[in-house]
Simulated scan of single mutants.
Amino acid sequence: MPYAMGPNNYGKSGIRLVRVARDTARHGLRDLTVHTALSGDLDATHYTGDNTGVLPTDTQKNTVYAFARDGIGPIEAFAERLARHFVDATPAITAARVQIEEHAWTRIGDHSFTRGEGGELRTTEVVYDGTSARTASGVRDLLLLNTTDSEFNGFLADEYTTLPETDDRILATAVTATWDYRAEPDDGGAFYDQAFNAARGALLAAFADTYSLSLQQTLHAVGERILKAVPEVGEVRLSLPNRHHYRFDLERFGLDNPGVVFQAGDLPYGLIEGTVRREAA
């Protein structure tokens, strides 16, 4: 055969799962989006249409809902339960990747909650290969803004440079952060929630505490602070879009603007990405 299949996988994406805990009159609410991806000995279905080794994506969806019946716990632990099941119970499957985003709701009563449009997501990705599981956790769309303590000057300028230097600007971003755990914890349930809270708290503190000379500097400060806060994390990957805020020119109206009125920019935007990792011992 002159053409061979390369790496491939299949699964169900965008499985929307809401679970209500009704053990007491004060209900609990979990709101997840789950994505599954399976790989293994799948040549037959690609080459000849023989589907005997294929676990339907609809079955994968149903499995997610069935597993939620008895509780979810930390999303990392739930993702690992699913990944291990898909590999261990399906002969043709040798690896499974399960990604989960959790949508946060704010309690306003015993059985009442509120959530604005968009907003921060807690995320995880678990990959299980039949022997071990690799887990990464993080946040996405975490909106952060400093109204001062941010500069940007001394940068390279050429014949196309029009950006003015500034020693006081608004610094705003929507953080996507992902951190890899170096080993599987003995107590997955308690560990993952504690580690997530510590990492998120370190991220917020670093953003608030850092006098920023560039968004790149802030990125490194955030990654460093997470690594210090959670020893089990090996590296942190960060994506920081620069949500530009431009001081609006009021002089044409006979008014000054002492840094109080800004126009929020949209497109295009600067995008700063990087990885902060522990140095090899």
Results as ranks from 00 to 15, higher is better:
residue 96 A to T: 09
residue 159 E to Q: 15
residue 100 I to H: 12
residue 112 S to D: 15
residue 130 G to Y: 10
residue 191 F to D: 04
residue 87 V to T: 03
residue 159 E to F: 12
residue 157 A to C: 03
residue 178 T to W: 10
residue 216 Q to V: 00
residue 118 G to T: 03
residue 224 E to W: 13
residue 185 P to E: 12
residue 153 N to P: 01
residue 192 Y to I: 00
residue 133 A to G: 00
residue 170 I to H: 01
residue 217 Q to H: 11
residue 151 E to V: 14
residue 93 I to T: 14
residue 126 V to Y: 01
residue 136 A to K: 14
residue 140 R to I: 06
residue 219 L to F: 09
residue 184 E to M: 10
residue 95 A to N: 09
residue 119 G to S: 06
residue 128 Y to C: 02
residue 144 L to M: 15
residue 222 V to M: 09
residue 128 Y to G: 04
residue 136 A to F: 02
residue 215 L to T: 01
residue 144 L to F: 12
residue 114 T to M: 14
residue 206 A to G: 05
residue 186 D to V: 12
residue 165 E to N: 08
residue 128 Y to Q: 01
residue 156 L to K: 12
residue 152 F to Q: 06
residue 209 D to S: 06
residue 182 R to N: 05
residue 143 L to S: 12
residue 198 A to E: 15
residue 224 E to K: 06
residue 186 D to Y: 08
residue 197 N to Y: 03
residue 124 T to W: 03
residue 157 A to W: 01
residue 206 A to F: 08
residue 112 S to F: 04
residue 97 R to V: 03
residue 201 G to E: 10
residue 97 R to H: 02
residue 188 G to N: 11
residue 204 L to W: 02
residue 200 R to K: 15
residue 177 A to V: 10
residue 186 D to M: 09
residue 105 W to I: 08
residue 177 A to W: 04
residue 125 E to L: 05
residue 171 L to G: 07
residue 177 A to M: 15
residue 218 T to L: 09
residue 162 T to D: 12
residue 209 D to A: 10
residue 167 D to W: 14
residue 178 T to H: 13
residue 205 A to S: 05
residue 202 A to K: 07
residue 162 T to W: 06
residue 90 T to H: 03
residue 132 S to W: 13
residue 157 A to P: 01
residue 91 P to C: 04
residue 169 R to K: 06
residue 148 T to H: 04
residue 115 R to L: 01
residue 193 D to C: 08
residue 186 D to W: 05
residue 183 A to H: 11
residue 200 R to T: 13
residue 225 R to L: 09
residue 120 E to V: 13
residue 108 I to H: 14
residue 114 T to V: 14
residue 112 S to L: 03
residue 139 V to Q: 11
residue 106 T to P: 06
residue 174 A to C: 06
residue 147 T to S: 13
residue 126 V to K: 07
residue 193 D to T: 11
residue 183 A to Y: 09
residue 155 F to P: 05
residue 201 G to Y: 14
residue 148 T to K: 05
residue 124 T to D: 05
residue 140 R to H: 12
residue 206 A to N: 02
residue 216 Q to E: 12
residue 94 T to P: 03
residue 114 T to R: 15
residue 94 T to R: 08
residue 127 V to G: 09
residue 176 T to E: 15
residue 202 A to P: 02
residue 118 G to S: 01
residue 95 A to D: 04
residue 175 V to L: 15
residue 172 A to K: 13
residue 107 R to Q: 15
residue 112 S to M: 04
residue 114 T to S: 14
residue 110 D to F: 05
residue 102 E to D: 02
residue 176 T to P: 06
residue 211 Y to Q: 03
residue 124 T to N: 01
residue 146 N to Q: 12
residue 185 P to K: 15
residue 90 T to D: 02
residue 207 F to N: 06
residue 193 D to I: 04
residue 111 H to F: 01
residue 126 V to E: 07
residue 85 H to Q: 08
residue 193 D to E: 13
residue 168 D to F: 07
